[in-house]
């Protein structure tokens, strides 16, 4: 397989829902691509469409009112609109997913071992014993204590952190080329969070997987990710290499997000900084730039929809002139310093 072909290319992905109040856009024209073994972090406020983007990639939006358009190509194969059978050959085998809440992500009536075995045997013709052996090894690899007995445990017999490890073991069971993790630690307590994230960060080396990681924890992004997508109101508003993006964010929304603290050094900004105002309701999306109502630098041009642009792989969707943006950012930061 040619190595220059990107692993995943998402183009103009749109997800909207038919509701009583009309069609609401949850994801609008999201495009990005991912190389093999690359880790990409996705950040953005609650409701910005991160989960819907990830679910759409794997065709997992089950609502009958959802409309998904655009293109998702995985190793050149279009996934959107793929027949279920063909999609199932990719799911779990090539692309695996880890969900936000480990407490509800596992079927309560089956042992975690059986749930892992089920996935292995769906994709590879191996004996039950061999699959079980692999399940034990996987549980061991993700740091579950005494994997020999843990394999026969039911989800409710494990703590949240242990369950998430089991979910990760299951996701890794077929050596996927891409792992999609949607806030894998949000539901866990702080010490466990660190362990799980460390585990995900090591996946690239241990399993050679590329990772899409959604998280609220900017410190994690700073440590783990190669590239970062910033989402706002269903769109990617900024995209760039981690270093670039943290050093010189281009979008006023990102300025607010990252605040003025240099995240590469010094104390970690643990959570997304609060930005005055709240994201627009999906049913009442403002004309033009969706961030406009909260933006200090809003001007006439912002009545149109800004598109993602910029040089050197660092792109943003904002009408402010490229040069001089950093000066604006610094004035904003200076203003925001608490008295």
């Amino acid at each position: 397989m040619p190595t220059d072909k990107p692993l995943l290319v998402v183009e103009n992905l749109c997800v909207s829902f038919r509701t009583e109040g009309g069609v609401v856009p949850a994801v609008s024209g999201v495009s990005f691509s991912l190389e093999r073994r690359e880790i990409i972090g996705v950040v953005g406020e609650s409701g910005s469409g991160k989960s819907q983007t990830l679910l759409a990639i794997l065709g997992l939006i089950s609502s009958p009112n959802a409309v998904v358009t655009g293109s998702v190509r995985f190793l050149g194969q279009e996934l959107l609109g793929l027949k279920r059978r063909a999609l199932d050959a990719v799911r779990g085998r090539q692309i695996a997913m880890i969900f936000q809440d480990p407490m509800t992500a596992l079927t309560p009536v089956h042992t975690i071992g059986n749930q892992i075995i089920e996935q292995i045997r769906a994709h590879e013709s191996v004996s039950r014993t061999a699959a079980r052996k692999r399940a034990v090894d996987l549980l061991d690899a993700v740091g579950l204590p005494s994997p020999d007995s843990a394999v026969d445990r039911y989800p409710h017999q494990l703590s949240g952190g242990m369950r998430q490890r089991a979910v990760i073991a299951m996701a890794l069971s077929c050596n996927p080329a891409l792992l999609i993790a949607d806030e894998p630690t949000t539901a866990l307590d702080v010490t466990v969070q660190a362990q799980i994230l460390e585990l995900i960060a090591r996946l690239r080396d241990g399993f050679g997987s590329a990772v899409i990681l959604v998280t609220h924890d900017l410190g994690v992004v700073a440590e783990v990710a190669d590239r970062v997508l910033v989402m706002y109101a269903g769109r990617v508003v900024e995209e760039g290499g981690k270093g670039q993006l943290f050093r010189e964010p281009l979008h006023p929304y990102a300025w607010g997000l990252f605040g003025s603290i240099p995240p590469m050094h010094g104390p970690r900004p643990a959570r997304l900084t609060a930005i005055p105002g709240s994201p627009p309701k999906l049913s009442q999306m403002p004309q033009g730039c969706a961030f406009g109502p909260r933006c200090t630098f809003r001007h006439e041009a912002c009545a149109a929809q800004p598109s993602l642009g910029g040089a050197g792989g660092h792109r943003s969707a904002c009408f402010l002139p490229q040069d001089g943006r950093q000066d604006l950012r610094r004035t904003l930061a200076a203003r925001a310093v608490p008295a």
């Binding site: 779990g92 969900f99 992500a105």
Partner: peptide, 9 residues
């Protein structure tokens, strides 16, 4: 959803 993501049909 987890089960569907496993590709088991």
């Amino acid at each position: 959803r987890t089960a569907r993501a496993k590709g088991i049909g």
